[in-house]
Design a protein around this nucleic acid. Structure first.
Length: 512
RNA sequence: GCCAGGGUAGCUCAGUUGGUUAGAGCAACGGAAUCAUAAUCCGUGGGUCGUCGGUUCGAGUCCGACCCUUGGUACCA
């Protein structure tokens, strides 16, 4: 009835925790998400891309205090750092949600109130071992040789009243849902881990902290002496950013993809979140895409070992597109991957510099030398030309299929098989030899070969657009056309560049 | 312990429902070429497909056991 909102393809990343500077893992998740969204846009899909920052909680409060700042002040600084990273990475997000924004707090409180009114939330005593030095409750597993380690200082048994969300009653429903929707969690083996996790009974979820213990949070609407804790704050960002309660909500929610790391799959995104939505009578997201971790020499990255890689340095050194290419080319989505500067340089030099960048250099140069910088007409079509065209068909059909399946590493490999194929074609025709000939037919071959090389390069770069938007833009400018916007139009081999004046000789990926 | 991923050329990885001499890129080596960022192209070498056993006419591909490695086992992307 009437004007209905068109449902957009709505993708979210996990929101980053405002407790430290961005590192490789943060950068990777953003790039992966951005590539998926750009891919959809190139397919003509209307998209909405959300990312953001999780600003509440004890660690943030403590971190601020340690630096003699107000929590909000420190969050503002960290938000700035993350936003700089997003810009540098050419992330094309539509919205940036910070959990301290009113639009978010309002929705969190509204959902909590609804659930409270419906009896989904109750108050109960919680007792456990509390370390005042660490300002947290400890688990049995924190014990060493049956005793609390020194670092926790004095540990006392404390009984505290808190609010709980009735999670447990939905366990059977959730298991059934996951069994029926086998593509809800991708890759599939991650779903199996969740089902395994759900074999044990799950407890109700403690969703509050008394304010005397944690001030930096969103107060419960039905009891202002508590703030809500972690997941009822953080997870809700996906619906609060979509404008829950507003007109446009249905045009975004349910989300199509939540992109997250494997560490926050079970239980937060695979258990708490679906159950929270179910209890709120909201539709569930279509899918959760779970990526792996970057390892450094096989070891997990962490700030504590000082081994973390600063993505900003790499971007400054090699450029955003090179960084994006590297992480998408090396990581099988869902698995872990190893990071090393040697591998980064190898990809940078071999794939980007030698195969792609050098190809651009030579075609720009040859066109300038042999054809006054104007793209000539293709007038003949012999075996080398049909071989190249066939290779293109194979490459783009294959790459598009692989991109659809989130197999970006394999898709990129396919594209570079094509790029290398163009170089092979260049050798086969050897325009520099043809240019020395006076024969009319050699002139035709020369012009045809340059036309084919330019066209093939245009297509290759169009296919790389989701991963390397900057290079796409730059190369297209040099070819005298606008950046690739729609694959349906731009992946067609049609020699549209004939007559265009090419730009000046350009080094895309300089050697040191 | 339990669960899951991985274990294929020096390195990073592909290998569809089991089928002829196991593939790619990088690295190494030899050659061609000179338009180009000393880039490109052609060719060569290199693997008992973690181990043992089983099913089968036939297994990297299925089954079992074991070994190594990474991760999860309630709150670090």
């Amino acid at each position: 009835m009437g004007a209905k909102f068109m449902k957009k393809f709505y993708l979210t990343t996990a929101i980053d925790y405002a407790n430290g500077s961005p590192h490789l893992g943060h950068a990777y998740e953003k790039v992966l998400s951005d590539v998926i969204v750009r891919h959809r846009r190139l397919l003509g899909v209307d998209t909405h891309f959300l990312t953001g920052l999780d600003e509440h909680g004890q660690k943030v409060q403590q971190g601020a205090r340690a630096q003699g700042m107000e929590p909000q002040e420190r969050c503002d600084l960290i938000a700035e750092e993350f936003i700089v990273l997003l810009d540098k990475l050419r992330i094309s997000h539509d919205d940036y949600l910070r959990t301290t924004q009113d639009r978010h707090k309002r929705v969190v409180r509204s959902l909590l109130q609804q659930l409270y009114d419906r009896g989904e939330i109750y108050q109960a005593e919680y007792s456990g071992y509390y370390s005042s030095r660490a300002e947290q409750f400890l688990q049995e597993k924190d014990k060493v040789d049956g005793k609390w380690p020194e670092i926790f200082g004095e540990v006392v048994e404390v009984t505290e009243s808190n609010y709980f969300f009735k999670l447990g009653q939905y366990q059977e429903w959730l298991i059934e849902f996951l069994l029926e929707n086998d593509d809800f969690i991708q890759p599939e083996f991650r779903r199996n881990q969740v089902l395994e996790f759900l074999k044990e009974p799950i407890n109700d979820l403690c969703i509050s902290r008394p304010r005397e213990r944690l001030e930096w949070g969103i107060p419960l609407p039905f009891d202002e002496s508590y703030v809500t804790y972690v997941w009822f704050d953080a997870l809700v960002n996906y619906v609060s950013a979509a404008g829950f309660g507003d007109e446009g909500f249905d045009s975004l929610w349910p989300a199509d993809v939540h992109v997250i790391g494997k560490d926050i799959l079970a239980p937060p995104h695979s258990v708490y979140w679906p159950i929270m939505l179910k209890a709120c009578e909201l539709p569930l997201p279509k899918s959760i895409l779970v990526h792996g971790w970057w390892m450094i020499s096989g070891a997990k990255m962490s700030k504590s070992t000082g081994e973390s890689v600063d993505p900003l340095e790499l971007i400054d050194l090699r450029g955003a597109d090179a960084f994006r290419y590297f992480v998408m080319r090396e990581m099988t989505v869902g698995q872990d991957a190893d990071f090393s500067l040697e591998r980064f340089d190898s990809r940078y030099h071999a794939d980007l510099g030698n195969d792609l960048g050098n190809l651009l250099s030579r075609i720009l140069n040859m066109t300038a030398r042999y054809c006054d910088g104007k793209v000539p007409e293709a007038t003949i079509a012999e075996k080398p030309e049909s071989d190249l065209a066939n290779l293109w068909d194979e490459a783009h059909v294959g790459a598009r299929q692989l991109f659809d399946e989130y197999k970006f590493n394999l898709g990129l490999e396919k594209i570079f098989v094509f790029i290398r194929g163009i170089n092979r074609y260049v050798e086969e025709r050897s325009p520099w030899k043809l240019a020395k000939s006076e024969a009319v037919e050699d002139r035709a071959k020369l012009e045809t070969s340059l036309a084919f090389i330019v066209e093939a390069l245009r297509l290759g770069v169009a296919l790389l657009a989701p991963v390397m938007p900057g290079v796409n833009d730059q190369v297209n400018k040099l070819l005298g056309i606008a950046a690739t916007t729609l694959w349906e139009d731009d992946l067609v081999w049609d020699h549209r560049l004939a007559g265009n004046s090419l730009g000046p000789k350009t080094i895309l990926f300089p050697r040191d």
